[in-house]
Design a binder for these strands. Structure first.
Lengths: 119, 119
DNA sequence: ACCATATTTGAACAATTGTTCAAACATAGT
DNA sequence: ACTATGTTTGAACAATTGTTCAAATATGGT
């Protein structure tokens, strides 16, 4: 009837289920978390973010640095803007992008550490 | 000829391009970084990871906690295993999963902070 | 008003994703 | 050997993704 209804018949397991359920944040928060972290999940965007950890950069310089087309960079910057990983300011014809805050750099750095340790 | 060839004609911009390029890690490292962080980028997987920050859990309890089907959980656990976000151990019929290391919990926690600050 | 530069946008496309379902495999108890 | 429980697997499907291309928008200089 209830399709997803589990499951463990063993009762030594499963005693903490209610406790864990009530420790979880709201679905809304979980979705925001996933959407924020999803924005890190593409090598073009990672390359852009790593470039921005060194310097504030305009769109066309990011294109030159990453080897991506200007259009591809702009599309990815939109994702990074929408998901609040980067901020920007206009200066004449150029728009300069930078990391939104330290959290973004921290996540990149922790992820780097993790990869180096795992081999 | 070269399709992606940029780009900025203004020379005040772009002087640091070479410097930033040489500061970037290898493409291989960038891809590993993206693949690791991509594994955080789905609300089902985030829910699983948050549950695991509280308790070591077996597959069917994760299913009960998250409301996902056992099969869906197992598929996602495979992603999390492959990308080294979780580890596991067998105990009889059950397989207990837990976060691979502190890095994973740290990333979840920093991302949570980020979201709360941005509103 | 016009032109060049810088950037964004929208449609199109192949490629990838997450879930479901049914079937398989693994372990433990009888 | 058989059965029940726990978990994984593979095929299928709709939905989403990232890039390209062509066209649009924005700013500044003449």
């Amino acid at each position: 009837m209830v399709k997803n209804a589990p499951v463990c018949k063993s009762r030594s397991v499963g005693e903490y289920v209610d406790e864990v359920v009530s420790s979880l944040p709201s679905d809304e928060h979980i979705i925001e978390l996933a959407e924020f972290l999803e924005a890190f999940g593409d090598s073009s965007r990672i390359k852009i973010l790593l470039a921005l950890s060194n310097h504030e950069l305009c769109t066309c310089d990011i294109s030159a640095i990453t080897g991506l087309s200007v259009s591809a960079v702009s599309h990815q910057l939109r994702v990074l803007r929408d998901k609040k990983l980067v901020k920007y300011r206009r200066e004449g014809r150029n728009i300069f992008y930078s990391l939104d805050d330290e959290h973004v750099a921290d996540i990149l750095s922790i992820a780097s550490q993790h990869i180096e340790e795992e081999g």
